[in-house]
Amino acid sequence: METLNYRFDGGTRRLKPTPQLLGVVSSGNLEVLIEQAPLAGGCSVEINTAARGFGAIWQAVIGDFFARWQLADTRIAINDMGATPAVVSLRLDQAVQAMLEEQP
């Protein structure tokens, strides 16, 4: 297993306080937990992956995600078993959309 950590600052979008868990960790998939957290306006992402040596690809996928959503005070945990970048982006977008849709 490899653990990767990323942090982004400068986001402006805050999510509702109820955490979201999407996906299932199994062969070729991943789970995403996204939650509100006091991070001084930052967005932190921790990835635990079985696929070692793909840090540059993860950084590109997570960087693109942050550029789209501009999240602030958000913690994201990803448990990965070899998901493709497209699946990673889909799960992350689903989690954020679920948290935005339920806001009053």
Results as ranks from 00 to 15, higher is better:
57 I>G: 02
32 V>W: 00
72 A>N: 09
69 W>F: 04
72 A>W: 11
78 I>V: 13
89 S>F: 05
48 N>V: 04
59 Q>G: 10
93 D>M: 07
34 I>H: 06
30 L>I: 02
93 D>N: 11
94 Q>P: 06
79 N>G: 00
94 Q>D: 14
49 T>Q: 11
65 F>S: 02
31 E>Q: 11
91 R>A: 14
77 A>P: 02
31 E>Y: 01
22 L>D: 09
17 P>K: 12
68 R>A: 03
19 P>C: 13
39 L>K: 04
87 V>R: 08
37 A>F: 10
47 I>Y: 08
39 L>V: 08
19 P>S: 14
87 V>A: 14
38 P>A: 13
78 I>N: 10
41 G>A: 08
69 W>T: 06
22 L>A: 13
28 G>Y: 08
71 L>V: 05
85 P>C: 02
67 A>I: 00
56 A>Q: 05
87 V>K: 10
57 I>N: 01
74 T>V: 06
94 Q>C: 11
87 V>D: 12
75 R>G: 05
73 D>H: 03
55 G>I: 13
14 R>A: 02
66 F>P: 01
46 E>D: 09
96 V>K: 10
71 L>H: 08
87 V>F: 15
72 A>Y: 12
27 S>W: 04
15 L>A: 07
81 M>H: 15
14 R>C: 01
50 A>L: 09
93 D>R: 04
73 D>F: 04
81 M>G: 06
44 S>T: 15
30 L>R: 09
52 R>T: 08
87 V>G: 05
53 G>D: 09
55 G>C: 11
96 V>N: 09
20 Q>A: 14
15 L>D: 12
80 D>N: 12
73 D>W: 01
47 I>A: 06
52 R>I: 02
22 L>F: 15
79 N>E: 06
84 T>F: 00
39 L>E: 05
50 A>T: 12
31 E>R: 09
52 R>Y: 04
50 A>W: 01
28 G>L: 03
57 I>F: 00
18 T>Y: 02
19 P>W: 14
57 I>R: 03
18 T>F: 00
75 R>C: 01
52 R>L: 01
62 I>P: 03
92 L>S: 07
23 G>N: 08
40 A>E: 13
71 L>W: 06
81 M>P: 01
26 S>R: 11
96 V>A: 04
75 R>E: 13
62 I>E: 05
27 S>F: 02
56 A>V: 03
53 G>H: 12
35 E>L: 13
95 A>V: 05
31 E>L: 02
74 T>N: 07
18 T>H: 06
